[in-house]
């Protein structure tokens, strides 16, 4: 479980996050949604430790990561997996080497055990056939799947995804969403996904935070979200013509 308490972050005089508190449970896919510039990426970076907030606490199963020293922070990061917006696969390595990398770096297993684990992860994301390819030979969706395989290689307790469907078609987005959701349930991981994809919201939103103006404007799940009277959220949700028409028909 991850708990954030009173997170406050500002750049210069501009406040980006103002007093954000939330709890992200194990085995749940939590989504952070909001317009571009709402502070989603900054919040995710504060949670994973790529940015330090001015105030607040980030508790990983009760451990405040912001008070950790460098060594403790590095150890915590070995319990994390992250899927970046650009997949961030290492160009100089093949797909298999990318997945093997965290295992080679930190696992005490033998080479054959590491190889077996990497192949298992690639099989889990249905990418075993592409193991010898280099990242630039893969499509956007395949790159995201390879990045998921790399993120889960060390059996993380926490999984973070920054705009996992960015640049993908709706069908591929669905595959990525179901993969993230499936892995979360299967391994009982605490997963936080940063997105503005409405399909993801409706498919995998066990827990949803809507950020607006650096504050949590609404919190709930995919079943509640269509029945809210929060004007900002409704404006955000129904900004798409298709959704407006579907909602109008209903």
């Amino acid at each position: 479980m991850i708990e954030i308490q009173n997170i406050h972050k500002q750049f210069g005089t501009q406040t980006v996050l103002n007093n954000i508190s939330a709890t992200f449970e194990e085995g749940q896919t939590s989504l952070i949604i909001g317009q571009s510039g709402a502070g989603k990426t900054v919040l995710l970076k504060c949670i994973v430790g790529l940015l330090d907030p001015e105030k607040g606490k980030v508790l990983y199963d009760g451990r405040n990561a912001l008070t950790f020293n460098k060594k403790e922070r590095h150890l915590l990061r070995r319990e994390m997996g992250m899927l970046f917006q650009s997949a961030a696969l290492f160009d100089s390595m093949s797909v298999l080497e990318n997945v093997m990398f965290p295992l080679d770096m930190f696992s005490t297993k033998t080479y054959n055990e590491r190889l077996k684990r990497a192949r298992f992860c690639l099989e889990r994301v249905n990418l075993l056939d592409a193991q010898d390819k280099s990242p630039e030979e893969l499509s956007g969706g395949m790159q995201k799947r390879a990045a998921i395989a790399r993120a889960i290689a060390l059996e993380p307790r926490y999984l973070f995804c920054d705009e996992p469907n960015s640049g993908l078609d709706p069908k591929t987005s669905l595959i990525i969403d179901e993969l993230i959701h499936g892995i979360t349930k299967e391994y009982n991981i605490t997963t936080i996904v940063n997105t503005h994809d409405m399909n993801s919201v409706m498919n995998i939103g066990d827990h949803i935070l809507f950020l607006a103006g650096g504050e949590i404007s609404w919190e709930g799940n995919k079943d509640d979200i269509l029945h809210t009277d929060n004007k900002l959220l409704n404006d955000f949700l129904f900004s798409s013509e298709i959704l407006r028409r579907v909602a109008g028909e209903k």
């Binding site: 922070r73 990061r77 970046f84 961030a88 696969l89 290492f90 965290p102 770096m105 930190f106």
Partner: peptide
Amino acid sequence: GTMRVTQQIDALEIMGVN
């Protein structure tokens, strides 16, 4: 520089790699 702008360095940091 390309690794930095394509978030590959962030990926290393998140893995706990210096």
